[in-house]
Design a protein around this nucleic acid. Sequence first.
RNA 1: AGUCCCGUAGCUCAGUUGGUUAGAGCACUACACUGAUAAUGUAGGGGUCCGCGGUUCAACUCCGCGCGGGACUACCA
Length: 1148
Amino acid sequence: MGNRFPEYKGLDLSQVNKEILKVWDENDTFHRSIREVNGKGEFVFYEGPPSANGIPGIHHVMARTIKDAICRFKTQCGYEVKRKAGWDTHGLPVELQVEKALGITKEDIGNKSSAKHISVEDFNKACRTDVMKYTDLWEDLTRKMGYWVNMDHPYVTYDNRYIESLWWLLKQLYEKGVLYQGYTIQPYSPAAGTGLSSHELNLPGCYKDVKDTTCVALFRVIRDKKSEFLFHDIETNDLHIMAWTTTPWTLPSNTALAVGRDIRYVRVSFNPYTAEPITVILAKELLHSYFSESNTGLHFSEYKPADKKIPYKVTGEFAGIDLKDVEYEQLIDWVNPGEGAFKVLTGDFVTTEDGTGIVHIAPTFGADDYRVARENGVPPLIMKRKDGSFGPMVDKRGYLVPIADLDDEFVKKNVNTVTYSDFEAKPVKNEYDNEISPDKETIDVEIAVMLKQQGKAFKIEKHIHSYPHCWRTDKPVLYYPLDAWFIRTTAFRDRLIELNNTINWKPQSTGTGRFGKWLENLVDWNLSRSRYWGTPLPIWVTEDRKEEKCIGSASELKAEIEKSIKAGYMKSNPLKDFTEGDNTEVNYQKFDLHRPFVDEIFLVSNSGKKMFREPDLIDVWFDSGAMPYAQAHYPFENKENFHLMFPADFIAEGVDQTRGWFFTLHAIATMISDSVSFKNIISNGLVLDKNGNKMSKRLGNAVDPFTAIEEYGSDPLRWYMITNAQPWDNLKFDITGVDEVKRKFFGTLYNTYSFFSLYANVDNFRYSEKDIPVNERPEIDRWIISLLNSLVREVTNCYNDYDLTRAGRAIQDFVTENLSNWYVRLNRKRYWGGDYDKDKLAAYQTLYTCLETVAQLSAPVAPFYSERLFTDLNGITGRHKENSVHLALFPGYDESLIDKSLEERMDIAQKVSSMILGLRRKVSIKVRQPLAKIMVPVPDNNFRAKFEAVKDLILAEVNVREVEYIDDTASILVKKIKPNFKTLGPKYGKLMKEIANAVSSFTSQEIVAFENNKSHKLSINGQEVILSIDDVEIISEDIPGWQVANEGKLTVALDVTVTDDLRYEGIAREFVNRIQNIRKEAGFDVTDKITVKIEDHEFVREAVKRHSAYIGSQTLATVVELSASLDANVREVEIDEVVVKVEVRKNN
RNA sequence: AGUCCCGUAGCUCAGUUGGUUAGAGCACUACACUGAUAAUGUAGGGGUCCGCGGUUCAACUCCGCGCGGGACUACCA
C-alpha cells in the first residue's frame, strides 16, 4: 500500500486503458471475477457468436458494451457470470467469400467437368481456414475495448462435438415427428440450375422492370347447391369468375381461386365483343377498372354490335366469404390434378389494389398459393415422370415437361395429349432457350390467345412490373417447388407466443411488436440448404424413400456403420478410432462430420436396404440458435448441471437478429425444453455515421474501433455509446461526442480526484480515522451524501432494469453538476489551510466516499478509468479487501441518509446564488467586491427556516454580508398571481378559461385580501366559484427600487450600494487574488510561506491597513505591509485601473 | 407491401399519470471567476415540438390519417 494518493499531470485515457489492461493481466482479474459471493449463484449470459471472417466494426463495440456492462454489474453484485465466448463458423457468407477469393462459383464445387473444379473436401478446407481469418483482430478488439468474455475454451460451431449436439437436437425433433420432408416454393434459376437464397435475390440490380403479357381469365362456375345463390335472377347461361395473372404460363397449373374474406364482390352482366351477353364476378372496388363508369347508364336494348361503348349492369353483390367453396371448371384441361381442385378459397393476402380482387392459384409456382392450397386441402398440379419422380408442369430447365418424359401410366390417366401436345416442351420464358430470338412470341401470348379464342379471356394486356433475375445468369428467376426438410414450428406457435410473453424485452416493443407479430405469422422452418460448408442433415434414406434413419450422436453413427459394413455397404468405419464416451478434443478429431465425408457413409435400413444421406445442410441459424445446448456439448456432457446454464438470464444483440438468432434460440428452446432460452434481452439499434447514413467501407464513413480506442481509450467510447441515446434507438456516431464525454464526464471526475488527492496528501489523510457520523457532518456534507444515496438507489434500479442509459446519465449528472460544480466548489476552503479538525476530516471522508462510490457505479460502463480511480483510492486506504473495482461488491444505499427536504433546501441555495450572480453581472459588480445585503420575501415560516439553513452557503458564494427577510405585511412587494391549472382543471373544467382571465386581472389589493382570507369568491357566467389558496400560485415579483430577480416562486433583491467599508474589503480580496497568481506563476509550493510588501498608494492604503491579517491568512503570508521602497521581485498589478507595485518573497 | 423504431434549438438528446414561460449539453456571442485551471460561472440569440385532423377546459404528451428517416420480413395475382 502506498503512502500518497497518486497525482497526475494530465488525463490520458488511452494510456489508462493500456495500463489497466496490464494490471488485469498481472492480477488475472477477469478469472478471479468469475466467482460468487454470499451464495448469489450464477447469472447466465449467452454470447451470440460473431463470425470471424469479417472485420469487427464500431457497431460491435456498441453491442458488446451492453453485454459487458450488464455482466460486470451482475459480477459486482456477487453473481458468478461465466459468459463463454463462441464463434459462428458455417454458412453462406463464408462460402461466398471463399468462392470470391478462389475465383469460382458454386457450379465449380465438386463438379469434375468444370474447368475450375475444386473438390468439396478442398473447398470446405478453405472455408475452415477462411472463417477464422480475423480471429486475431476480434480477440484484440475484445481485449482493448474491455469486453470480458471467457475466450479460454470458446465454442466453435464446426467442432464435431458442437455438431453432435445439433444432431442430437435434430433427432429429438425427428422423434417428436416435427422434422419432416416437404417441398416449398423457392426462387430458382433454371439457367443456373440452382436455387437462390433471399440474400442473393436482394443483390443490387436483381429486380428489373420487364414487360409481360397479362391476361384476365374467365373461370366458369359450376352450377350446383353451393353456387346456386349466384345464379339467382341470372340473365345468361354462364357465370364466370374473373382473375388476373402476369404469368399466363401458370394458368394450366391452376387448381384454385382465392378471394378476400371481407372484400365485396359484384356480379356484372354485359355484352363482350361476341355480342353474346355473359355474367362475371369481380371485386366491387375494381368494377370500374373494367367497366367504364361513363357507360353506367347505357341500356342493353340500345346496343348494336359495332358500338364501342359496352353497356353493363350490376346484378348482385356478395362478400368474399360467401363465395368460399364454390367450384369451377378447369380453365385449361391439359392435366388433371386430382380430387379437391378447382374451388374458391379465402386468403388474407388478397387485395383489391390491382387485378380483379380474385387471385389465380397455382400451388406449384407461388409461395402464397402453395400455402393457401395446402391449408385448404387443394392439390397442386403435379406430374409423374418416367424416372418415377414427381414435379410441376415445368421442369428444372424451365420448359413444359415433354410428354416423352412423363410416366406412361400417368399420361394415360391424367394428361390430355391432344391439347397439351401443342405446348409441351416449350420454355416458359424465352430467355431459357438461347436459340429462340427475343422477338418470338412467348408462351404467355400463345396461351392468352388460345383462351381468347375459347372465350375464356376477358382482356389481354402488356404490363410492366419488376421481376427478380438471377445475379449470375441475368435471366429471370422462377418460383419453383423444391424438396426441403422442415421443422413444423407452426405446431408450437401458441406455446412460442405464450413463452415470449414472459420475456423481458428491452425495448418492450420489439418483443410484442416485431417479434410477437413474427410469431403470430409463423411458417414452418425450412432447414435445407443445398450448400457445402455447414452442419449436414443427419438423415439417411433408402432409394425408394420408404425408410429413414435420423442419427443423433457419433456413437450411434459408428454403430450404424458397423451394421452397414456387415451388410456390405461399407468397407471400413471412418469412426473406428472414435472412443464412445471420451469427450476430449483429440477423440473428436479422429473423424469429420462435414461433407463430403458424411456423404460417403452409407447405412443399412432395418429391412436391409442401402441408405444414402440426404444431401442437404441445415440452416446455419440452427447452429447459433442451438448454442445453449451445443456450447455445453449437451447431453453428452453437462447433463446433470445443465439447469445451471439454461435458460439464460440475459442476452443482447442488434435488433437485426430478431428473426435470426432471437428466433432460433426461442424456437429451439421451446421445442426441446418447453422453456424460454433467455429471460431478459436488450436489442440494440444500428450505429450510423454522424449524418445518419449507414456505415460502409465503400462510402468511407466507417469508424474504425481500433483507431477510436487508441485515441480516446475505451471508456469515453463506451460511455458515449451508452449515454448518448437509448441503445435501441439508432446511434448517430459522432466522434466529437466522444471527445465531449471525455472532457465533460471523465475530465470533471479526474479533476475532482486531483483536487482530493492534492489536499489529502498534504494532510496525510488515509481514511484511517473512524467515520464521523453523518448527522454530525455539516449540512452540505449531508446534502451530497443524501444525493449520493439517491444516486446509488437510482443507478441500482436502472441497472437491474437493464436501462444502462439512464444509469449513466444519472451518474454523469451527479458528478458534473452536484459533486464538482457545487459541492467541491463551495467547499474548497475547507480543504486548504486550517487545522486537521473534525470539519476537515468530514470533508475528506465525504468527498472520498463520493469518489469511491462513483467509481463503483461507473465500473460496468467505464471499466478502465473506474478501476484506476478505485485502486488509486483504495490502494491507500485499503477499505476494500479486493483492490479492484470489479471484485469489490456493488455499493448499497441507506434510505435513512436520503433527506428530500435537505435536497430541496440546497436547491434553493443553488438557484438563489445563481440569481444573485446574475444580478451582479447586470450591474457589473464583480463577485470579489463584497456587498451589504440581499432581501428575500418569505411567503411563510417554513420557507424562512429552509432559507436560514442554507443562508451561510449563499452569502459566502455570492459574497454578500447579510440577508433581510421581508414578510407579508410589508407593502413594498409587488405580487403576481397565477391560476393552478392542475387543481382547478378537474374541478371546473369548461370554466377554466374564464377563471384564468379573472384571476390574472386581480389587483394587488385583491391578491393581498385573498392571501389573508385564504379563499376568494368569483362569479363566472352566473356560477359561483370559490377559489382556495391552493388553487393559485402567488409570487412576489418585484421590489420597487431594488435589483430584483425571479425564478419560479423564488424572488431575491440585491443591495448594490458599495460603501467605503465594502470597497476596502473588495480591494483586499483583489490583492489576495493577485498574490495567489504571483505565487503560482513563481512556482511556489502550496505550503510555502511568504512575505508581501505592497506599494504605499493612496488608493489601497486604507484597505491594506484594515485587512492585512486577512490577506496574510489567505496567501500564507507571514508579513503583509505597506512599503514606500520596493526592490526585489516587484510585480505590477492593476486593481480598478490603478497600477500598484507588489513584492512577493518566499520565506527561508 | 407488412411489422417495428425514430422525428423537440444549428448538432446530440431530456421532457414524469395531459396542466399553460418546452429544458440540458455542444456550438456561437458577450461578460465574469479561478491555488480544481487543457477546468468553471453568468447572460444572450436560437423552436411551426414533422404535417393535418380528432378527443379534452387544456395536447410535445392520448387517438386517427399522412410525410420523412431507418430496420426487418416479404415480393405476391
